[in-house]
Design a protein around this nucleic acid. Structure first.
Lengths: 190, 190
DNA sequence: GTCTATACACCGATAGAC
DNA sequence: GTCTATCGGTGTATAGAC
C-alpha cells in the first residue's frame, strides 16, 4: 500500500473518532506512519484531504453496489439489491458510513460540485423515474421519492450500526424494512 | 434580551453558516455584541456553549410540538400533528434545524447523556408503543418504527429546506408524505 | 457582570536537505 | 518522494480592572 493510501486510511479512522476539527494533520501523519510534510505533498491543504477522502469513499460504495447487480429483471428486485447491498456495505464499513454522515452534515458538502454528486445519484434516479413512467411506482415528484428512499436507507443504517444486531437479526430487519418501503412507494402489490 | 441569550443566538447563526470549527469564540462574541470575556463568563468552555445551545434548541422544538397538540383523538391524528408541526417548525426555523443536523452528526452527540435525549423522545415512543399494542400499527420493533418515522421526517425536512418550495407546495408535500408514512406503518386502512 | 488585554498552546503549511 | 525543522497565524481561555 502506498503512502497516499495510508494517509487516507489514517484520516478516515481519526476523523470518525475525533471529528474533523479535533484531528490535526500531525496526528494523521503519525497514524499513517509518514512524515508531516509527506501529507502536504499529496494533499496541498487539509481541506483537500477531507474532500479527496469523501470522493474516494463515495466511489467505493457506488462501485460495490454496481458490482453486486446481476441482471435483476423487475424493478422491485433492482431496488431491493440497491437497498440491501448499500446497507450490507455500510455494516461492513461502519467507519466509512459514519464518515459520510459527518461529511454530509458539514460545511464541506457545499464545496463538492453538483456534477460530482450527480455522478453517484444519477443512475439510481433514472431507475426510479422509469418506475414512475411505467406505473409501477406511485406518481410523485422524483425528488421527493429519492429523498424518501435515501432517508429510509440512511436511518435504518444508523439503527443497525448503533444497535449492534446479530447478523441474522440484521438481515431480518433489512428484509422487513425493504418490504415496508416498497409498500409505501409501489402503486399496487408487486 | 439578556447577553446570555444574545450569545446563544449569535452562536447558532455562525455555527450553521461556518461550522463549529470555523467559528471562533471571538466572532461569536462580536456578533452578539458582547466582550470576549463575557462569553466565557456564561459558558466556561466552547464545548459547553455548543451543548447548551443544542439543549436549548431541542427543547424549543419539543415545547412547540407539545403546545400545538389540541386533544386529537385518533392515533393517526396525533401522529399527523407531530409530523406536520415538526416540519412546519423546522421550515420556520431553518437555522435551528440545520444546527441540529450538524450536531447530530458530530462527535458532540456522545457528550449528551441518554436521559437528556430520552426526555425528548420518550413521549413520542410511548405513543407509538400504544399504537402497536392496540393493533393500529403493524407489529415491529419499536426502535425500528421510531427510526423509520424519524428518518422520514428528517429527510423530508431537508428536502423542503433545500428546495425552497412555495408555502402551498410545501404544505402539499407534507400532507402527501404523511399519508405515505401512514400507509407504511398502519395495519389496515385508517 | 462586563470589559480589555494578553498568555500561550496548537496547528496548518512551508523550506530545504536528502 | 520523503524527511526534519520551524514559522506564523489563530483561537481558547485567563487575569484583572471597573
Amino acid at each position: 500500500m502506498d503512502k497516499k493510501e495510508q494517509i487516507l486510511q489514517a484520516a478516515l479512522k481519526l476523523f470518525v473518532e475525533f471529528g474533523f476539527h479535533n484531528t490535526p494533520t500531525s496526528k494523521i501523519a503519525k497514524e499513517a506512519g509518514v512524515a508531516n510534510g509527506t501529507l502536504f505533498y499529496f494533499f496541498p491543504t487539509k481541506d483537500d484531504l477531507v474532500k479527496a477522502l469523501y470522493l474516494d469513499v463515495k466511489s467505493r460504495l457506488t462501485n460495490y453496489v454496481a458490482e453486486t447487480m446481476r441482471g435483476e429483471s423487475t424493478l422491485k428486485e433492482i431496488l431491493k439489491v440497491h437497498y440491501t447491498e448499500s446497507l450490507r456495505w455500510a455494516l461492513e464499513h461502519k467507519t466509512e458510513f459514519l464518515f459520510i454522515e459527518q461529511f454530509n452534515a458539514s460545511t464541506y458538502l457545499k464545496q463538492i460540485s453538483c456534477e460530482e454528486i450527480e455522478k453517484h445519484t444519477k443512475p439510481f434516479v433514472a431507475i426510479l423515474k422509469e418506475g414512475i413512467d411505467n406505473k409501477i411506482i406511485k406518481p410523485m415528484d422524483i425528488g421527493v421519492l429519492f429523498t424518501l428512499i435515501g432517508g429510509h436507507t440512511f436511518a435504518i443504517n444508523k439503527y443497525l450500526i448503533d444497535n449492534q444486531l446479530s447478523d441474522s437479526k440484521g438481515t431480518e430487519v433489512i428484509k422487513d424494512t425493504f418490504e415496508l418501503i416498497w409498500d409505501m412507494i409501489a402503486l399496487k402489490g408487486d
